[in-house]
Amino acid sequence: MFEYFGDNYTWNMAVNLALGMGAEIGEIDDASGPVKEASRRGDPRAAEILFAAWTGLADRVKALAQQDLQHDRAYSAGRKFKRAAIYYVQAERMQAPRFPGRDAAFRDTLECFRRYVELTGQPVEWVDVPYQGTTLPALYVPARETPPGGAPCMVHFDGLDVTKEILYLMGIGDALRERGVSVLLVDNPGVGEALRLQGLTNFPEAEVPASACVDYLETRDDVDASRIGIMALSLGGYHAPRAAAFEPRLRCCVAWGANYDWGATQRYRHQSQDPRLPVPHYWEHAMWVFGQTSVEGLLATADRMTLEGVLDRIRCPILVTHGENDRQIKLAQAERLVAECINSPKAELFVHTLRDGGAEHCSVDNLALGVDTIADWIDATMRELKQRPQG
């Protein structure tokens, strides 16, 4: 993994993710001098320093986009709005939940992402999935061609700290679209707009929001309702298999990074004070995501998030991808997850090695490899499902 911030794993993850989304390393480097110094000296205000540096960078790039618009350079403006969105969202997700300025940075992210989509003609439709008297915000990316009867579609949930906009900019929507598969990128409860703007918090029964997404997709004429699958990354490595185990309408499943026993992982983190965390202020963030007011309450909820005794219910194809050098979740969790899918007609584990790349958590060190591996498997699996109808 590119270790721009030395031994600061959490910040290095943010840089790698930003680059995988389309950031420019020169822009990051120009803005991050004070941030690197704060990281080296262990400044307790380091995350806030990063916020000031990266939102300042986003402001500058957005101003350049607005200059382009004044000169009728719409496409160039759109590309800059994209990078501004990346810097805003990375600065925002690295802060404590009640940090001043976080709400504004998130709204700037949404605004810049929308301008990027509109000005560059991205194939994105904003949709609201009906869900328990409210909605789940989502982005629908259609397959390039819609055959008679509709195209297959993947429901894509987030992880603990990413958003549907991050997922789109990671390239998974385009990768599936080009292979003839649509995708619904969803801010499920506990992430993105669902958490920040609607107050929806996460919980173990992932089949509940997943079923709502299937209900919605079944209303669309451009979706083949017999070929709807689910995928998710990081914490979603629990959510996607859990949903597939309890929602039989899901015809395939991808865990982009395994998460067999999230409770055990959290108890280890709490006891060991392991610094290899996805975001700073980790325990505050996780409590916010799950609507808990204490670490004890969070851990009690986390203990319910295990796939033990569940995976024999999965009767659809499932792929688990995992990094050989994943420093957050051990490879053994991925191996156990696949081994216990005893009733799946095709349960496969793909390990990204240090030699080939993509070996870190969710392949953040080489997102292109991770995306292609998953998209190719989904493409092949959806073709197989077409030849082998349900029932």
Rank of each mutant, 00 (worst) to 15 (best):
S182F: 07
A104T: 15
A96D: 11
T321K: 00
I25E: 13
E205I: 00
L337A: 14
F51A: 07
C362E: 08
S76P: 01
G33W: 07
Q132W: 07
F290E: 14
G229S: 00
N8L: 00
I25N: 02
P209M: 02
V279W: 11
L197E: 15
W256R: 06
A332T: 12
Y168F: 14
M21W: 01
R304D: 12
E296S: 13
Q271K: 12
E360S: 14
S344W: 05
I172W: 05
T134L: 03
A85G: 15
S234Q: 03
P345Y: 07
P248L: 08
L136T: 11
E118V: 06
A359S: 12
C112P: 02
M21G: 05
P280N: 12
L119D: 06
N16W: 06
F106K: 02
D312V: 00
D29W: 05
A85N: 10
N16S: 15
M154V: 13
T265F: 10
I25V: 09
L217G: 09
L311S: 09
L185T: 14
D43M: 03
M21L: 05
M231F: 06
E145H: 05
A244K: 04
G291F: 01
K62A: 15
K164F: 00
R315A: 04
L235T: 12
C153N: 05
T10L: 06
T120W: 10
E335N: 01
R73K: 11
A286L: 13
L354C: 09
F106G: 08
F246K: 10
I314G: 06
L233C: 15
L185I: 15
K346A: 14
A380Y: 10
G309I: 08
D222R: 10
L367D: 02
R355A: 09
F350W: 13
T301E: 15
S76F: 05
I28W: 15
D215L: 02
